[in-house]
Design a protein around this nucleic acid. Structure first.
Length: 375
DNA sequence: ATGTCCCGCCATACG
DNA sequence: CGTATGGCGGGACAT
């Protein structure tokens, strides 16, 4: 395989990005009727290696869009499952963070802040059977390993990343900051890299959007959440597909690449898949049957508790101010402004304390760079 | 130079 | 053992 290659430099990184791949994945399986998703099928259809599918699937599962069913098999839950998933992550996040032994404000900031400051991201693994375990050592060991494994999984990182937004009033955050907040056991650098992956797929779902910090400095991501979009099974996907991509180097004649592997195109599960999606991701549906202008959009600034877009259980009549063709109308922006960045609970305060500490130390450490890990 | 992040080696988990 | 998962990070591409 490999095929000589290295010839046509039509190669463009963007075309192979995880985000775009995720968008394709989504549009491919969001078209009604899909219930099961085989990883092999997805991989061959999207023309990528299995490895990439794992990345996507893991984060999608973290937000409820997919659910693992069995080996090589996932169940499509749809965007409508997102609200519940976020809700769950939310109180899960608020619930944990026991603080272990921190009743008073964090005192002193450890002289040597190596890397092990974790305090927030704690998978609340209920130990309801921490004592009465008839489990043989094997199980214990395995469990321990799984835990350790899981500890650094993309899925967990994703959940914690999301919790960051959903549990606080943080609206925008840079990946560096996020990585520091979500310190685990891995080096910051590695974590940031993973965060890029996560951010990309989350972006393709429009749960977040790339921007820059308030200081108009470093790039960062802004939480969009459910906004007012119709996260329902019907239609809607609205991947912001900008057509302003005529930024080619060599020559952009086509997007041809992707070597359709055509591995095993069985498609047994897919009962019907007409013409499926067109070639491009730019579907420009914008159908929007009737755009009831409604009122001026009495934004739900009222009291949705704290985060507007949390549909309790149903799907409110949508408000969706379509967008798509061009720059999405961010009037959520103003909505976001309404939210006062005030911490409403102790947990968040703590979180921010640590955040500040980490930030400062990291900042002072500055470009410590070159961790030169003894290999 | 710094920010992104693709690619795929290879350790693990699983069967 | 073979196969399925998915950490992890070198280093290429973007800005």
């Amino acid at each position: 395989m490999s095929s000589s290659s290295t010839h046509h430099h039509t190669y463009s990184r963007k075309q192979k990005s995880l985000g775009l791949l995720c968008t394709k994945f989504l549009s491919l399986y969001n078209k009604g009727g899909v219930r099961f998703i085989g990883l092999d099928d997805a991989a061959s259809r999207l023309g990528v290696e299995r490895r990439r599918i794992y990345d996507i699937v893991n984060v999608l599962e973290s937000v409820g869009v997919l659910a693992r069913k069995a080996k090589n098999q996932y169940t499509w839950k749809g965007f409508s499952a997102i609200p519940a998933a976020l809700e769950e992550l939310k109180d899960e996040g608020l619930k944990d963070n026991p603080g272990s032994f921190d009743d008073s404000n964090d005192s002193a900031k450890v002289s040597d802040d190596e890397d092990e400051e974790e305090t927030f991201p704690n998978v609340n693994i209920e130990s309801q059977e921490d004592k009465a375990n008839n489990l043989d050592s094997t199980t214990l060991v395995k469990s321990s390993k799984n835990e350790n494994r899981r500890e650094k999984s993309l899925a967990l990182l994703t959940q914690n990343f999301v919790k960051l937004f959903v549990c606080s009033n943080i609206e925008t955050i840079s990946l560096d900051e996020a990585a520091k907040l979500l310190l685990g056991n891995s080096i910051i650098r590695t974590k940031v890299r993973r965060l890029y992956d996560i951010a990309n797929v989350l972006s393709s779902m429009n749960l977040i959007e790339k921007t820059h910090t308030k200081n108009t400095r470093k790039p960062a991501f802004r939480w969009l959440g459910l906004r007012g979009r119709t996260w329902n099974e019907s239609v809607d996907l609205a991947h912001n597909s900008n057509v302003k991509e005529s930024r080619k180097r060599m020559f952009g004649t086509d997007i041809t690449n992707i070597s359709f592997k055509r591995n095993k195109v069985d498609l047994s599960i897919d009962g019907q898949s007409p013409k499926m999606q067109n070639q491009e991701e730019n579907i420009s549906p914008r159908a929007q049957p009737e755009i009831r202008k409604l009122k001026k959009d009495a934004k739900q600034t009222s009291k949705n508790y704290q985060f507007g877009p949390f549909a309790p259980n149903n799907v409110p009549t949508v408000v969706s101010s379509e967008n798509n063709t061009a720059k999405p109308v961010h009037d959520w922006d103003s909505l976001a402004q309404v939210h006062r960045p005030q911490y409403q609970n102790q947990a968040l305060k703590d979180l921010f304390s640590h955040y500040m500490e980490a930030w400062k130390s990291w900042n002072s450490e500055a470009a410590g760079k070159k961790s030169r890990k003894t290999k």
